[in-house]
Each structure stands twice: as C-alpha cells, then as structure tokens.
Simulated assay, not measured.
Amino acid sequence: MLIVTTLIACILAVLFIRLSFGVIRLRRQYRVGLGSGGVDDLERAIRAQANFAEYVPIALILMACLELNGAPLWLIAILGIAFVAGRLIHAKGINQPPPHFSNRVIGMKFTITTLIVLVVFNLAWLLLQLWK
C-alpha cells in the first residue's frame, strides 16, 4: 500500500487544481481562450501550472517506487514534504507580480534537489535489496 505517496499525491493534486483555477479565472477575466493573449498575469499563471505539471509526475513515480520497494515511510514523507514545499514556493514566486525570482530559484532548488535525492535513494535501495 502506498500510504505516503498517496497522501503527497493528494496534496499535490489540490495544489494543481488551485493553479488550474487560477488560469481559468484569468482566462475568463481577460477573455483569452488560447495562449496568454499577451497578458503577463495569465502567462505567469500558465507557466506556474505547466511547470507544476512537468515536475510532479516523475517525483510521484520515484516516491511510489521507493515506497513499493520497502523504504522507510519517514524517509519518503520527508522527501515528499520537501518536494511539496518546493512546488509551493515556486508557484508563489512565479505568480507574484512582478515575479519574485528568488522564490522561483528556491522553489526549483527544493524541487531538483528532491528529485536527485529520490533518484539516488531509489538506486541505492534497489542495489541494497538486490544484494540481500
């Protein structure tokens, strides 16, 4: 059973829905059906949503692999929390006019670092399990 991954996936889904509603709200406000229509606020919202959608699936896959292979739940939870924090910080940074590049950088550092750690831990855990 994927207890931690399921919880993190639910939290991330709520965040994705919120980002999606932000795009929808701005599309309605500015009457833009496709693209950003040259509206900076909408462009930021679209990129925040798209960036989120680009990074979340691989993180959840790596978390699920780690959890299914029997890694400690506390370890997966810490990595999941770090990833969620990174995605929140990034989304906040990109959506604030003018964009707060420091928040975007911090958010991406959390995101990328978590992904790297997930890859390393998955490979290490796999090797550990194979050598038993």
Score class of each variant (00 low, 15 high):
residue 1 M to R: 12
residue 1 M to K: 10
residue 2 L to G: 04
residue 6 T to M: 09
residue 6 T to V: 11
residue 9 A to W: 01
residue 9 A to C: 07
residue 10 C to T: 14
residue 10 C to A: 07
residue 11 I to W: 10
residue 12 L to T: 13
residue 12 L to V: 14
residue 13 A to E: 10
residue 14 V to F: 13
residue 15 L to V: 08
residue 15 L to C: 13
residue 19 L to A: 12
residue 20 S to M: 08
residue 21 F to G: 13
residue 22 G to E: 03
residue 22 G to V: 12
residue 23 V to F: 04
residue 23 V to L: 09
residue 24 I to G: 05
residue 25 R to M: 06
residue 27 R to V: 12
residue 29 Q to P: 03
residue 31 R to Y: 13
residue 31 R to H: 08
residue 31 R to M: 10
residue 33 G to N: 14
residue 33 G to W: 03
residue 34 L to W: 08
residue 38 G to W: 04
residue 40 D to M: 08
residue 41 D to S: 14
residue 43 E to M: 08
residue 44 R to P: 02
residue 45 A to R: 08
residue 47 R to P: 02
residue 47 R to K: 12
residue 47 R to M: 03
residue 48 A to Y: 00
residue 55 Y to H: 15
residue 56 V to E: 09
residue 57 P to C: 07
residue 58 I to P: 02
residue 59 A to S: 11
residue 60 L to R: 00
residue 62 L to N: 00
residue 63 M to L: 15
residue 64 A to Q: 11
residue 64 A to L: 12
residue 66 L to Y: 10
residue 66 L to D: 00
residue 66 L to N: 02
residue 67 E to R: 01
residue 70 G to I: 10
residue 71 A to Q: 08
residue 71 A to C: 11
residue 74 W to C: 07
residue 77 A to D: 05
residue 77 A to V: 12
residue 79 L to S: 00
residue 79 L to R: 00
residue 83 F to R: 01
residue 84 V to E: 06
residue 84 V to W: 04
residue 87 R to I: 15
residue 88 L to S: 02
residue 90 H to F: 13
residue 92 K to F: 09
residue 94 I to D: 00
residue 94 I to R: 01
residue 95 N to V: 09
residue 96 Q to R: 15
residue 97 P to M: 09
residue 99 P to H: 08
residue 100 H to P: 03
residue 100 H to T: 07
residue 100 H to Y: 03
residue 101 F to Q: 13
residue 103 N to W: 10
residue 105 V to K: 11
residue 106 I to N: 07
residue 107 G to W: 01
residue 110 F to L: 12
residue 113 T to P: 00
residue 116 I to M: 02
residue 117 V to T: 14
residue 117 V to I: 15
residue 118 L to F: 00
residue 119 V to N: 00
residue 119 V to A: 01
residue 120 V to R: 08
residue 120 V to G: 07
residue 121 F to P: 00
residue 121 F to Y: 04
residue 123 L to H: 01
residue 125 W to H: 15
residue 127 L to T: 14
residue 129 Q to A: 06
residue 129 Q to M: 10
residue 129 Q to N: 13
residue 130 L to S: 11
residue 131 W to D: 09
